[in-house]
Design a protein around this nucleic acid. Structure first.
Lengths: 114, 114
DNA sequence: TCCATAGTTCGATAATAGTCGAAATGTTGA
DNA sequence: TCAACATTTCGACTATTATCGAACTATGGA
């Protein structure tokens, strides 16, 4: 992943409203949530919500597909994965620097022999 | 970690210049780099570099300490770790959604029983 | 003490982003 | 075809951010 692309993803997540939306979808899992449910959960005006959903979609962190009158959004786990891999790539010269991520199964970056 | 705090860290990383600085320091490891070396590596004007270093320091992603005439900056791996843990917390309802992070030792988030 | 070097702060400017009411678009069911 | 609902687009406003030259501060050596 390019630095510029990664920066765009991070900037997209670097806003409280969008991060809340993203986290909601991450926890919702692959089935995702329809827009109105997200708006209700986060008490966000429709226009504002749409603006942020469009932003997250444009950078590829989430995707949406129409389901009759609704649009169901869900996390693009692949993009999320690549982003985390980019952040931790070649990190810390072999020390076990990311214990909490490891606990959650995200693993200490340098436990890996590769 | 609070959503607002996480958003501040992500916003700090959500800019090409700051992300480049951060990645440079992540790869440099615990010993870090002095400011002038960073500026040289990234061809950044001193005032601009200082602005971004101050930003990254303020949110706690890096730290700096004076070494005679120089200031040596290094990654705060703890903050980085917490941030990744926040992003992946309770993710994806048990699917193995983060294979690349796992490859690097960042681990698929849901391999973990907790 | 004085100079050179490393780094930060100041100030001005330009560009971008966030919010939300109102209007428009798309979809379903009557 | 029309009404109701879900969502997006438009428009206008406000606020924040990035950049960088110039001036300032701090440190070490002559």
């Amino acid at each position: 992943m390019e630095t510029l692309t990664a920066a765009e993803l991070l900037a997209a997540l670097g806003h409280e409203s969008r991060l809340s939306i993203f986290r909601l979808l991450v926890e919702a899992g692959p089935e995702g949530m329809v827009a109105s449910a997200i708006g209700e959960a986060l008490a966000m005006a429709p226009a504002t919500l749409s603006f942020h959903l469009a932003h997250l979609t444009r950078v590829g962190l989430i995707g949406g597909q129409r389901e009759s009158r609704f649009i169901r959004y869900s996390t693009n786990y692949g993009a999320m994965d690549e982003l985390i891999a980019f952040l931790t790539h070649n990190c810390c010269h072999g020390a076990a620097c990311l214990p909490k991520s490891a606990e959650q199964g995200a693993g200490a970056c340098c436990a890996d022999p590769s």
